[in-house]
């Protein structure tokens, strides 16, 4: 059912609320992590358990993947619900993906590899799950770097969009990274991979009616 058109100011307010809410919600895991490290370094006890490094690496990795799947869920949601204001949070979700993925890497690099580039290179060459994870992280960098309105303008919408389709490859790499990482047959990484697959399949459904849902605040949607 088409919504009645809203006044411009009203829509802007709705988008602002959405953005603020998203910003706070996705910041919460990071706040929690910082708090736990605060407890750990002062009182010695934290919810991170007895192997806080491993727990933190796992935690940031999982949140990077969750943020990524949320990012990928935005355009199908906008398309099928026709609730276009939701498009306004996509960029922020993408940047959170990058933030958590970068933290995930920094913890691995700092504590597991103790800042040894040679050890990281050896890991990338030897271990498939590291190779794929690192690939995903490297692909995220140009996307994060071209997230501003200025970058979109400089690149031009079409080229920007082509570049940002890399997010599908990143999603596949991230899911494979998790699947290969766990020991034995574990369900959890397959749940994430399944959600990713579903979000990809939704994009294959041909558009029958209506123009692309777009908003003034963000770039054209992908397919």
């Amino acid at each position: 059912m088409p919504r009645p058109p809203r006044p411009l100011a009203d829509r802007r307010r709705q988008r602002d609320l959405l953005k603020r809410g998203t910003f706070i919600l996705l910041l919460m895991p990071l706040v929690w992590l910082v708090l736990q490290w605060g407890f750990l370094l002062t009182t010695g006890g934290s919810a991170l358990g007895v192997n806080p490094i491993e727990a933190s690496i796992r935690f940031t990795g999982e949140w990077a993947l969750r943020a990524l799947l949320l990012t990928l869920a935005v355009s199908p949601l906008a398309r099928f619900s026709r609730w276009t204001p939701v498009m306004s949070i996509r960029r922020m979700l993408g940047l959170y993906t990058f933030t958590y993925a970068a933290l995930h890497f920094c913890l691995y690099f700092g504590f597991d590899k103790e800042l040894s580039v040679a050890d990281v290179v050896a890991d990338v060459l030897k271990r498939w799950y590291i190779t794929l994870g690192m690939g995903g992280l490297l692909l995220l960098i140009p996307l994060a770097a071209t997230s501003s309105a200025g970058a979109i303008r400089r690149l031009g919408g079409r080229r920007w969009q082509r570049l940002h389709r890399a997010v599908y490859a990143i999603g596949a790499l991230a899911c494979a990274h998790f699947v290969l990482l766990v020991k034995g047959n574990q369900l959890e990484p397959w749940v994430y991979a399944g959600i990713f697959a579903l979000l990809m399949i939704l994009r294959l459904i041909p558009r029958s009616t209506g123009p692309l849902p777009t908003t003034t605040a963000s770039a054209p949607t992908g397919h």
Partner: peptide, 19 residues
């Protein structure tokens, strides 16, 4: 002898930050 998932050269003693 390195494991396909984990280098076995070092270990993290539970309770310590570095390897």
């Amino acid at each position: 002898v390195s494991h396909p998932r984990w280098s076995q050269a070092k270990e993290r003693r539970i309770g310590e930050f570095f390897r």
